[in-house]
Simulated scan of single mutants.
Amino acid sequence: MKVKLFLSVAFFLSIICHVSAQDDLLKELDTIKSKEKQTETLGFKGLQICNMQSTKLTAKGEWYVLISHRFGDLTEGFENFFGLDDAYTKLGAIYGVTNWLSVGASRQTNNKIYELTLKYRLKTQEVDGFPVTIVGYNTMDINTNLSTDQYPNLQFNNRLAYTTQLLVSRQFSDKISLEINPIYIHKNLYDETTERKDQFAVGLGGRYKFTKRLSMNLEYAPRINAPESEVYHNLLSVGLDIDTGGHIFQMVFSNCQTMNDVYAFSNATGKWNGGGIYFGFNLYRVF
């Protein structure tokens, strides 16, 4: 009996020592990890803030399917049934080539525009190191709605327009993230009375997280060298992100109905204080 009791006590003590050793080992691993540079990865939940891109990228090998929709002018009321009669749709796909590089292609009904995109991370925010995340973003539009009936001397080059953007964001806390985005816009074909061949803008965006799955987004993009005209205005949008687990659903209210970057930053036709408010959504599904 004494032998059995002795063996039982010895076995119990060996278990305690084993667990204690494991705890010490885990503590050492945690200490090692804490010395490594940690990065912020969830400054923005969606790939877009509203219309403007965020600094979030797809992971390597991931496919994102994009469905965006913008209804007509809400302020027209029953005239267009609160925008339901005049809607634009955008369909696209984005692929993560690496964890820092993604490519995309989309097509929207407005002017039958095809948009090709390239997004690449240059630097990532670190908890105790580099203060911001920096991402480059380039787009190329192909306007397939233009015809030689309208422009007899039309060439393929006239269909093209571009943007070059530098997205710089910082996650200040678990709830608040902000972004600034210098933007260069180039159009090969443009209206000299209301547009410029080369135009600059500065996008400002932010996100406030209410809960784990719900956040509010805001963006504003003042144009720097826009011609004096009452035709186009600075982009201003507000949205709501809903994370359903399988996809990100973004509800958007904006003064721009078109969804390609060139038009959004230079050809917003609405005014929040004078008509031209468009409701819509962005839906991203990852595979």
Rank of each mutant, 00 (worst) to 15 (best):
T117F: 02
D73L: 11
K197P: 01
N260P: 08
G61P: 04
Q155P: 01
E195Y: 03
L178G: 11
P227A: 15
A93C: 14
G239V: 00
I67T: 11
N217T: 14
P222F: 06
T211D: 12
T75I: 08
N143D: 10
T194C: 06
S54I: 02
K33Q: 10
K33A: 10
N145M: 05
F279W: 12
N145T: 06
G206H: 03
G72S: 10
V286R: 09
R170Y: 02
E230S: 15
Y120L: 13
P222H: 07
H247Y: 03
I113F: 06
M259F: 01
R207E: 01
T164L: 07
I242P: 00
S20Y: 04
L235C: 12
V286Q: 07
W100P: 07
I242F: 01
S68L: 01
A59C: 09
R121E: 12
C50S: 14
A10S: 07
R107V: 02
Q53M: 10
T139Y: 00
V238M: 12
R107K: 13
K37D: 07
L57H: 04
D86S: 13
A10N: 07
I242C: 00
I183R: 00
S229K: 05
S215Y: 00
H186A: 15
K119V: 01
G203K: 00
I180L: 10
I242Q: 00
L154G: 14
M1Y: 04
N188Q: 05
S266M: 08
T55G: 10
G136F: 03
